[in-house]
Amino acid sequence: MSDTAAAKPKGGPTDWLKRLFVRLGILPFLLVISVVVFSLMSENFLTGRNMMNVLRQSVYLTIVSLGQMFALLTGGFDLSVGTILALSSVVGAMTMASIYGAMPDAVWLAISMGCLAGIAAGTLIGVANGIGVAFFRVSPFMMSLGMASVGFGIALYLTGGVPVYGMPIQFGDTFGFGTLLGVPTPIWVAAVLILALWVLLYWTRWGRYFYAVGGNLKAARLSGINVQGVLFSTYVIVAALAAIAGMLLTARLDTGEANIGASMPLESIAACVIAGVSLRGGIGRLENVVLGALFIGLVQNGMNLARIESYLQTVVLGGLLILAVIADQIRLRYVASLKD
């Protein structure tokens, strides 16, 4: 065999796709497939107006998924994010409506205090989760599941299951339907949060600690990392982001709802796993999670345009999550084989 023949790369298109899969994960393949399928099913899918609509609808899931990524990075997950959305929505709406009813001229005071109250109420769920996981070493599954029940019960108790009305119309007009430079306000909020989290994860020492704790907890502790502080801050960050998403969604709905966010735990975990965040901890990229959340929003939008029933949409989402987990396991095997 000549030297030229020996120097040629092995394999054909299959090996090239395998290498691409190992490097990028399953998300690019799913994006291409979904765009092609839904473009064929609806001529309105790839229009600029619909793409902007997808971005706006995906904002809430994107923000929650960014928080869920922190939990997954440290080797846990948060099942209470849906409850946090509901509790922040209810408390924020009730506070806002109460202040606005007492002082109709103090519109922005009512909006500010309502948003602060809603975000604080949601963040308290994260504080409880953080204390349980970090200091009492409760399983993240059990801790967040228990707090999900507690928070949901509080939200229902406060409202009796009835939506909360009476908020200033400016709240919905600004944070629900408002635009800045032609871009919806919620997208700007998400962009600011993405930038802040990017700096935290990739430009600070504390950001590297999240990866270290999830990668090897004992090694992180032995290297002097404050593991309890990292775990506590993780669940506070998750809750704060979910609470912000809850207030934005409240502005969009123009009511405080105790029943919103029920599907958010599944969707946020699916967005992270599809984006390549490892369920074992220590692996994941923020920009990929943003794309993962947008992908789920794209699929939901495409199914709506294709007039697929909402019940079947839940089936599709669950199937995507299972597919992503299987793909992640196959990818890990490929990586291991390449190292050997």
Rank of each mutant, 00 (worst) to 15 (best):
residue 83 T to D: 06
residue 192 V to L: 14
residue 17 L to M: 15
residue 241 L to D: 08
residue 176 G to A: 04
residue 334 Y to I: 03
residue 223 S to P: 13
residue 273 V to Y: 08
residue 200 L to Q: 13
residue 290 V to L: 15
residue 181 L to F: 14
residue 235 Y to L: 06
residue 196 A to D: 10
residue 331 R to P: 11
residue 241 L to N: 01
residue 189 V to T: 03
residue 260 I to C: 02
residue 226 N to A: 05
residue 49 R to F: 00
residue 117 A to E: 10
residue 42 S to D: 15
residue 20 L to N: 12
residue 177 F to V: 00
residue 295 F to A: 05
residue 86 A to H: 01
residue 232 F to N: 02
residue 90 V to Q: 06
residue 114 G to D: 09
residue 220 A to D: 11
residue 58 S to F: 00
residue 259 N to Q: 13
residue 229 G to L: 04
residue 25 G to F: 00
residue 81 V to Y: 04
residue 253 L to Y: 07
residue 22 V to H: 07
residue 292 G to L: 04
residue 145 L to E: 09
residue 5 A to F: 06
residue 44 N to H: 11
residue 88 S to V: 14
residue 90 V to R: 06
residue 318 G to H: 08
residue 162 V to D: 12
residue 87 L to M: 05
residue 189 V to L: 05
residue 200 L to V: 11
residue 105 D to V: 02
residue 146 G to I: 01
residue 137 R to S: 14
residue 56 R to E: 11
residue 164 V to L: 11
residue 105 D to W: 00
residue 262 A to T: 15
residue 185 T to W: 02
residue 325 V to G: 09
residue 9 P to L: 02
residue 3 D to T: 07
residue 128 A to M: 14
residue 35 V to H: 07
residue 308 I to A: 10
residue 157 Y to H: 10
residue 137 R to C: 02
residue 175 F to T: 06
residue 58 S to Y: 05
residue 71 A to T: 12
residue 5 A to N: 12
residue 158 L to E: 03
residue 142 M to R: 03
residue 258 A to H: 10
residue 50 N to R: 08
residue 28 P to Y: 04
residue 323 L to M: 13
residue 169 I to P: 03
residue 76 G to T: 03
residue 55 L to V: 13
residue 302 G to M: 10
residue 9 P to N: 04
residue 306 A to N: 09
residue 270 A to S: 14
residue 9 P to D: 09
residue 289 V to N: 01
residue 179 T to R: 14
residue 273 V to L: 02
residue 337 S to G: 04
residue 159 T to R: 04
residue 207 G to E: 13
residue 174 T to E: 11
residue 97 A to N: 06
residue 209 Y to P: 03
residue 331 R to A: 00
residue 269 I to N: 09
residue 114 G to T: 03
residue 224 G to L: 04
residue 244 I to L: 15
residue 79 L to T: 10
residue 334 Y to F: 11
residue 109 L to Q: 10
residue 116 L to E: 07
residue 55 L to Q: 08
residue 240 A to N: 03
residue 329 Q to H: 05
residue 274 I to M: 10
residue 66 L to H: 08
residue 38 F to N: 13
residue 247 M to N: 05
residue 257 E to M: 14
residue 132 G to V: 00
residue 102 A to G: 01
residue 335 V to P: 10
residue 117 A to M: 14
residue 150 V to G: 06
residue 284 G to L: 06
residue 164 V to M: 10
residue 249 L to C: 01
residue 268 S to F: 08
